[in-house]
């Protein structure tokens, strides 16, 4: 048989790297935090991503799925994810223990245009699991604090217990270089001292915004986009400075399997970060 032994192949973008679960704990009832390190030390340290990018994670026997990176490249070595239990791969991830191995490849996607955002005011609006990709860019901006203007965070959750990274964000309220506003739709704990109401009820609390000089970054459940985008447009933030990150079925992450295609835009290559302008002229985006 003429089986070829391809020595010429140096890179195989489909082949994962073994990676170790360093730490894992629950963030809410169905969302868990994972700290992961690529097993090969050199590769772990040379891994570079932009905030807003994602990786493909595989669990042996379960399959592979895309996940946003929640950590910032300004703190290299470890990768962090917050993952909701929703399907076969995430179910398997929830069974995995610290020190177990998974497969990981990436980073993929465009990520947030952090270079264009330099010197601009950054308004981050997150709801629910939208905190997963946006925490990355928030921490990045805070780590490079002098590169940016004002940094404003609006974070909404249904109930206090469902607020992802609640303690982390609550402690951020102490910072004087961050305008941090948190809200819950309803308080069933009786101990919530912050705003109660949907995330848009935080907008009136903002000090006046310089729209032309502001980048707004949004991620959350579909219903949130509808109302938040309206607020942002009302603030006169240009549509190409409103950035959102989107979810699609993906099987490859590298623009080949076709599942995430919208027209001829591949969410995995040309996204997952799109501007509101992209969304308006590409019909199927949201």
């Amino acid at each position: 048989m003429n089986t070829t032994k391809p020595q010429s192949i140096k890179t195989n973008p489909f082949l994962p790297e073994p990676a170790r679960i360093v730490r894992t704990y629950d963030l809410t009832d169905d969302v868990r935090f994972f700290q992961v390190r690529i097993a090969d030390m050199e590769k772990a340290l040379s891994f570079r991503n932009r905030p807003g990018q994602f990786v493909m994670i595989s669990v042996l026997g379960a399959g592979e799925a895309p996940f946003s990176i929640s950590s910032t490249p300004s703190r290299p070595g470890l990768l962090e994810f917050c993952i909701r239990k929703t399907g076969i791969v995430t179910d398997a991830l929830f069974r995995i223990k610290e020190n177990d191995l998974i497969g990981l490849r990436g980073p993929y996607g465009n990520g947030f245009p952090v270079d264009n955002m330099v010197d601009k005011d950054i308004l981050i609006v997150m709801g629910g699991l939208g905190a997963a990709p946006l925490r990355s860019v928030l921490l990045y901006c805070l780590d490079n604090r002098d590169q940016f203007g004002r940094i404003i965070l609006l974070h909404g959750a249904k109930r206090p217990a469902e607020m992802i990274f609640r303690d982390e964000f609550l402690s951020m309220k102490e910072r004087d270089d961050l305008e941090c506003y948190l809200s819950v739709d309803e308080d069933d704990s009786g101990q919530w001292t912050d705003n109660i109401g949907v995330v848009t009820t935080l907008f009136p609390k903002l000090e006046s915004i310089d729209p032309a000089n502001t980048y707004a970054l949004v991620c959350g459940p579909p219903i949130m986009y509808k109302f938040v985008l309206k607020e942002l447009v009302n603030l006169h933030i240009p549509k190409d400075q409103i950035l959102m990150t989107l979810e699609r079925r993906m099987k490859c992450g590298v623009g080949k399997c076709g599942h995430c295609a919208i027209d001829y835009i591949y969410t995995c290559l040309d996204g997952p970060v799109f501007t509101y302008w992209d969304v308006l002229h590409m019909r199927e985006l949201i």
């Binding site: 026997g61 398997a92 069974r95």
Partner: peptide, 11 residues
């Protein structure tokens, strides 16, 4: 069968 043994339902 093999997927279920690993705790993973079929896709």
């Amino acid at each position: 069968f093999t997927r279920m043994l690993g705790g993973n339902p079929p896709e």
